[in-house]
Design a protein around this nucleic acid. Structure first.
Lengths: 235, 235
DNA sequence: ATCCCTTTGTGAACACATGCACAAAGTGAA
DNA sequence: TTCACTTTGTGCATGTGTTCACAAAGGGAT
């Protein structure tokens, strides 16, 4: 019965907008490194690969941080977006499963620079436990709950084979974790209030294959619907 | 102004639907392995983690493949979805960049079982070139065009550092590739007609952090209105 | 054949997202 | 101050996606 009323200081930022904020943040970071102090919605949109009206509407959800006739102050906008995304605080992340993918994640620089700290690496394989990766000791999965509590882990990345994922998911949610990034190709079942985001490498390829097939169909004189080619050329 | 008329045999499947088909496919594959012959939209939706009305609407875009009062034939539906996604043909994929991520991708079983064949691994690092990974020789990036042509590569995965990505993207599109899966944290610029899908590991974490922060805010009693920064601060 | 039960496929209402186009608000020059 | 110019922020129209709810279709029992 209670509907979300659109309010001035509405904290309800649309999901689609949230998903793009990191994109803007990255573009802005690049600019500040190149010494750019101020940017227009047009230029920032170009750098982020979206259109400028969308960018302005997205930013308007955070507040009114631009100056008409001038643009946005790069540093200030970085701060505002970071704060909105919660990147001004430090997040302790545990990675479960230290195969190639887990290693790639542990070594990925993009995390650290955005407030994420890899606080623990865990694996079930005794061959791997004890290894030193990205400056961290790989610990045994039996220690999961203890390690998470000790290091204040609040976000967990699951990079294990599919078969182990649900059980590990149950353990981390039981331990109070409410944010999970899942790379295992299974649909995780979680209690209410827990957020799961899923990255599925093979799904992305399947979507590409779908479009690639359509392109191929079209060239070989299939059911060509010429109207789809129209979509105006942007000057 | 010719608009897309809704047609009976409309090949225009909504993007949102395409993105879910691989999910259904995986759930169905699991079922067929467990010997399930027939499944209702309710059960399949549960297994795929969506609601049943959405599932039925999605499937209705492919055609009318269910039986009222009974459900869907698992094998038949697998075939129809596979065909629609273009997985009944073999796709040759090249992976550029053989770091931890490239290795993880090369070893990921989920590709092969879905019609994707890793046909080439390429890297610029002479230390890595010549290594044998997942049954393939790592080749030098100088050979890119020759290797792609020889093996009939039509989908390219970019798993290199950000700095190298755009240049490599230019080379593969120049060579005629029109489907790219990009793991490098940059916005790639491509000619018209080229599809790029992007997987950004740190974006996913940032979205999680946003929601985690909101949960934390809520618990600590209400919307904290701290307007910490004042606009004057920046140069 | 008739009846009852199950489950699909879809029209229609709603919700969310995008993009155009412009008034409002700012800068800088004279 | 006034004018010319730039760029934001947003109302509105349009487009896309989701969900409800039910008629239509099929199965199986009698």
């Amino acid at each position: 019965m209670i509907r979300r009323l659109p309010q001035a200081r509405d904290r309800g930022i649309p999901e689609a907008t949230v998903a793009r904020l990191p994109l803007y943040l990255r573009a802005l970071t690049g600019m500040t490194e190149r010494g750019v102090a101020t940017v227009s919605s047009e230029d920032l949109a170009l750098a982020a690969g979206v259109n400028s009206a969308k960018l302005r509407k997205d930013l308007s959800h955070l507040g009114s941080y631009g100056t008409r006739g001038v643009g946005y102050d790069v540093e200030y906008l970085i701060y505002q977006i970071s704060r909105e995304l919660g990147l001004t605080q430090d997040w302790a992340v545990a990675i479960i499963g230290v195969g190639n993918l887990g290693r790639a994640l542990a070594n990925y620089g993009g995390f650290v620079s955005r407030g994420f700290r890899i606080a623990a690496l865990l694996d079930a394989d005794p061959e791997i436990v004890g290894d030193r990766i990205a400056g961290l000791n790989v610990e045994h999965i039996d220690e999961l709950e203890a390690v998470m509590a000790r290091r204040g882990v609040s976000i967990v990345v699951i990079a294990t084979p599919a078969a182990a994922a649900q059980q590990l998911c149950d353990r981390v949610t039981a331990a109070g974790v409410t944010s999970i990034l899942n790379f295992a190709p299974v649909v995780l079942t979680v209690p209410d209030g827990v957020d799961v985001r899923k990255v599925d490498l093979s799904i992305e390829l399947q979507i590409l294959a779908f479009h690639e097939q359509r392109k191929a169909d079209r060239e070989s004189g299939g059911p060509v619907m010429a109207e789809e080619w129209q979509q105006g050329a942007s000057a």
